[in-house]
Nucleic acid binder design. Sequence first.
DNA 1: ATAATTTGCGCACCCGTTTGCGCAACGAGG
DNA 2: CCTCGTTGCGCAAACGGGTGCGCAAATTAT
Lengths: 340, 340
Amino acid sequence: MENKIPTIKEIAQKLNVSVSTVSRALSDHPRIGLRTKMRVQELAKQLNYEPNSKAIYFKQKKSYVIGVILPYIREEFFSEAIRGIETLALDHDYTILLGQSFDDAEREKKVLEAFKKQRVDGVIISLSKQTHQYEHLQSLDKYEIPIVYFDRVPPLKQVHKVYCNLRKGTIELVNWLFNKGHRRIAFINGPEKINASKERLDGYIDAIAGKKIKVDMQLVVRTDLTKDSTCNAMKTLFARKHPPNAIITFNDYVHLDAVQYAKQQQLKVNKEVLFVSYANLPVTGYVAHPPMASLEQYPYRQGEKAMEILIEILRAKSAGRPVKTWFNEEIAATLITTHS
Amino acid sequence: MENKIPTIKEIAQKLNVSVSTVSRALSDHPRIGLRTKMRVQELAKQLNYEPNSKAIYFKQKKSYVIGVILPYIREEFFSEAIRGIETLALDHDYTILLGQSFDDAEREKKVLEAFKKQRVDGVIISLSKQTHQYEHLQSLDKYEIPIVYFDRVPPLKQVHKVYCNLRKGTIELVNWLFNKGHRRIAFINGPEKINASKERLDGYIDAIAGKKIKVDMQLVVRTDLTKDSTCNAMKTLFARKHPPNAIITFNDYVHLDAVQYAKQQQLKVNKEVLFVSYANLPVTGYVAHPPMASLEQYPYRQGEKAMEILIEILRAKSAGRPVKTWFNEEIAATLITTHS
DNA sequence: ATAATTTGCGCACCCGTTTGCGCAACGAGG
DNA sequence: CCTCGTTGCGCAAACGGGTGCGCAAATTAT
């Protein structure tokens, strides 16, 4: 009754051959006789034999597991990214270990340690917004565990990464607003330290400057992405003599909080003040006041691409040939406008 | 330069002691001298030594990995559940392998095979809505890989499970509507085959019957959870002579689609027809017309509880003592009303 | 018939770690 | 001085599977 997971050894015993014969028969070795091969393969199928990947790790030094670390999977952006990663992984016989950092650098480190202990073949990561040191990540590289960053990538040259160019995207966003006649365009940006904020801001400034109107830095405020912080940012903006007539929010979640605040203040959302945002999450399709434009960042494609790169690196590694360059994949963000 | 992952063997060589001594020193064995212990532990820390869990698996038959299979992590319910699972897992030195079934039984099976190959210590799963056969799941049990089901559990006795009693919850929901004066209470239920639909329906019928008014089965319609299907259900309901004045939707996502349809039909949502639902997802806080009441199903707690049970089972297993019973944890769903 | 070659399979070791057992060295008690 | 117990450590086997090498038997060439 006690049905253990079958091993090569058991198959060998039942068939009165040696373990090595069974091993070779299963891998279709030419030096094994046809009748033996058949007997072994038949019994293996019958017993539902599955090679123990732990044992294989010793020989091949491959675990067929890749670790994925994300800030929050409950954000649609990241759960879509995982879908891209997972789908490609399954096709290539990889399984994924998941860890969430919850935007906490310490936790990110802990998860990374656990992954290292599990001897993952590679890591795909979108950094926590508290991560500003990269030594622990680089150390994995030293141990020949390749890392591919996506979306929230570190400001380093010698890494593999996939991301959207948000500077360009932001310029598109500003241009779109400008063409609609908006001039007092406010910008609720994210935490200063993270790269994504800097990129957005650069784009904003470049776009405005390109219009030959003065950049008013008082129209640029920050949020740490919490609801309270976003409300404060809104309050600051609308305390001005000339409040903005358009607002760019850091992402769709900030948008939701900002709009909620605006409504409480009896502002006519998307009438007297137009909202645009980043991410283009499906959920915005259901809200009362979606952003009138949102910058699609293709999370599925980013995840897929990151996995594609990782697979390529691993393939190169096991083939013994060195990886030529640092992959640096820029995916174009696209402006999506809501059917108004 | 080529920094390989350090092994016990290397530590032993550098210190001129045997591998076994190093192993024991690291696990604080009493028969190892204090000075040797110190030297070993210091070097281990310095080299950033991490035991190879693959090798440990041979001895202990434990991979310290548990597999989690969910339909879709993009649903907030499941991503919250994962959070509960993951948090507890990390505290107990487990890492989680993630797989999504996308409500496809075939894919679920594939993921399960992959997990088996990876020799997970246990599995936590919320079934795909296409899964109506359980042999492949039971077969894992045969190999002594325990399974804990949660939320979408199979209708079997001899399994470990965690779930909300939705029959009771539905009765609460109906009572709440009744007390508010509603009598024509429609019910947009989910796919017939899944257990959750049956439970909800039972509750609905019991509650109505308890009120001594006739159960009108024409007020009960179905959706397969797609948007189109939900719209059809709505169309059917409002084609009646006496359309419903309250609607219970299968979950918050169905609610969103149903409300969107209602608005297109110029219905006064939550005025002439009141909507209530299941799940109480945070996202509903941002929509124009949230359900006026929703049955909180505590996904975080369910995930946490499932992990807790799994850990208990694994603990019992490695201690050699048999698991006494089949865990059957019922979590009470709670009616949450929107501040109206 | 004998030598050369091919075919079919087993022996033994490797991977990293744990663990039962045994062997020395040392101190204490007789 | 001998025995016994303790302390500190190494040897070797085991886990599941891969693989180079070698040894016989079967086949072919001479």
